[in-house]
Design a binder for these strands. Structure first.
Length: 485
RNA sequence: GGCCCCUUCGUCUAAUCGGUUAGGACACCAGCCUUUCAAGCUGGCAGCAGGGGUUCGAAUCCCCUAGGGGUCACCA
């Protein structure tokens, strides 16, 4: 068996989106599952659109997701000599030829084909002009592009692990350009040279590349190398079933990160888009990366494009949020708390300790880190309005202000303020006055949090401490008295 | 338009060689639990794109139609 070597080869023309990230994930899982090597390559042959900052962001996103690569990054822009020498070889072997057709000429041909409603194929104008005849043109300073000489009939077959044999009629393939007149290789060529020279055993990539694969197969055959095995994974579509783009809201890994999703949740969610672990009944879909590596197989990758659904991602994130290691969660949540002004840029020991305590309580009802921070506001600010619905429910009863004042008085008399003590105080008060606990707890909750729901009241009070708790209860009582019923 | 791929609940998916009341998850609805809100538990709603074959029997195999997606550049 040849050693498994796979690659993820993004072009640095934008942020890493969920489709690319999932392709990277599948490559990673496949490599790990088969004790292979995961190579990162940056396909930056398009000088116009490639940007270094995107390369940085791409790598940052991969690292954040935990998809560590074993080799690379290799840059196509650094490998120009390899491509040129391979192109020269093909020209020398008469498997490729110089083309002097102008861009305008070609565009006109395409335009005509479009008008006549037929597919455009390069007519092979320059096929006959083998080297000698080109001399005078090159002397005139015209730079040629190089085209691959492709077969006129027969078929090219792509062997795909997910789709089986895919046949392409060679009559539908023309002599495409492998080296542009500016001296840069085209994607189809550079990619093949790299895959071959890097000894990639399996090319796992998105389905959008399937139609280009016969061209790559032709390149590889002309170059005389052994072909890698292909696996074209289904696309991830936007909710409107179209290809992902900016107008679809959050699509990039970075955006999901900023929206408060955890990398493990995103990984878990993406893995299930197209791949299925086998789905026996009652088996959880919550799968950590290690378990995923054990279970992964391309045979269980489906053929249908998936529409991503943020609801399920959100649910999954909530699941991870609850189980996460508290220290790591606090670390991940920090920026979100800072953004709300709940935390300083360089918080001290005490603040971090308090942060963890708050998170431990609030995370039970948050699904994203944004929500986690938002739902923690009353631990950091006295300045909040009462929720109207909760107010109508909890503050409307006649004796509420008096009850609040009673409670404030009882709390004030306490030496210790932990949740066991305060709960006992509440219970005794209710029993003595024959009031149901809810009639006391809910108004107090509203007084100290402004909300009708949330964590256990006694947990909140302990975290908040006696001073703030009592003050808020007294203020609530006062505001009820001052409001005409 | 040519070529290529695809088609199971709203969404993600399962159903190894054709025989299942077509299963699970998210979302949604209801109930239970609870000081509340979540979580959790229980139950419910909901699908084989359509039409022909083949077969005793088809979600599963074949053909056609429809729909979706991809690709056809001196982009990747």
């Amino acid at each position: 068996m040849t050693k498994v070597r796979v690659r993820f080869a993004p072009s640095p023309t934008g942020e890493l989106h969920i489709g690319g990230a999932r392709t990277a994930l599948f490559n990673y899982l496949f490599a790990r599952r088969n004790s292979g090597t995961f190579v990162l390559r940056i396909d930056d042959t398009d000088l116009e659109r490639s940007k270094e900052e995107y390369t940085e962001k791409l790598m940052e996103a991969l690292q954040w997701l935990g998809l560590e690569w074993d080799e690379g990054p290799f840059y196509q822009s650094n490998r120009l000599n390899e491509y040129i020498s391979e192109v020269n070889r093909l020209v020398a072997e008469k498997k490729a030829y110089r083309c002097y057709c102008s861009v305008d000429e070609l565009a006109a041909g395409r335009e005509l084909a479009r008008k006549e409603n037929r597919a455009y194929l390069y007519p092979g104008t320059c096929r006959q002009h083998f080297p000698e005849e080109d001399d005078h043109r090159s002397k005139a300073g015209i730079k040629p592009a190089i085209r691959l000489l492709t077969p006129e009939d027969g078929e090219t077959i792509v062997y795909d692990l997910i789709r089986g044999e895919v046949h392409f009629d060679n009559r539908g393939l023309d002599d495409f350009i492998i080296l542009k007149s500016n001296g840069q290789p085209t994607y189809n060529f550079a990619s093949v040279v790299d895959d071959l020279q890097l000894k990639i055993s399996h090319v796992i990539r998105a389905e959008e590349h399937l139609s280009n694969t016969p061209r790559q197969v032709l390149c590889a055959m002309a170059l005389g190398y052994q072909l890698p095995t292909y696996a074209h994974v289904p696309m991830i579509l936007a909710p409107d079933r179209s290809k992902l783009s900016k107008r679809h809201g959050a699509t990039s890994v970075e955006e999901f990160r900023n929206l408060g999703f955890l990398p493990e949740a995103l990984i878990n969610y993406m893995a299930l888009l197209g791949w299925s672990p086998g789905a026996e009944d009652g088996v959880s879909e919550l799968i950590g990366i290690e378990h995923m590596i054990e279970l992964f197989s391309l045979a269980r990758v489906g053929k249908t494009a998936a529409v991503y659904d943020t609801d399920k991602l959100t649910w999954m994130n909530g699941q991870y949020l609850r189980e996460y290691d508290l220290d790591r969660l606090a670390e991940a949540a920090r920026p979100f708390f800072i953004k709300h002004g709940f935390l300083r840029e360089n918080p001290g020991e005490m603040e971090l300790h308090f942060l963890k305590a708050v998170i431990a309580v609030v995370r039970e009802r948050a699904k994203t880190l944004i929500e986690l921070a938002e739902k923690s506001f009353y631990f950091y600010s006295d300045d909040f309005a009462y929720d109207q619905k909760a107010l109508d429910k909890a503050f409307k009863n006649k004796g509420v202000a008096a009850i609040l004042l009673d409670i404030a008085g009882l709390l004030k008399a306490l030496n210790t303020f932990d949740q066991n003590v305060t709960e006992t105080v509440f219970n005794e008060y209710c029993a003595k006055n024959n009031i149901s606990p809810g009639k006391v707890i809910q108004p107090v909750r509203l007084a100290i949090t402004g909300l009708g729901g949330g964590p256990g009241l006694f947990e909140i009070m302990e975290l908040l401490g006696p001073a703030r708790t009592i003050r808020r209860i007294q203020q609530a009582a006062a505001s009820i008295r001052n409001t005409p019923q």
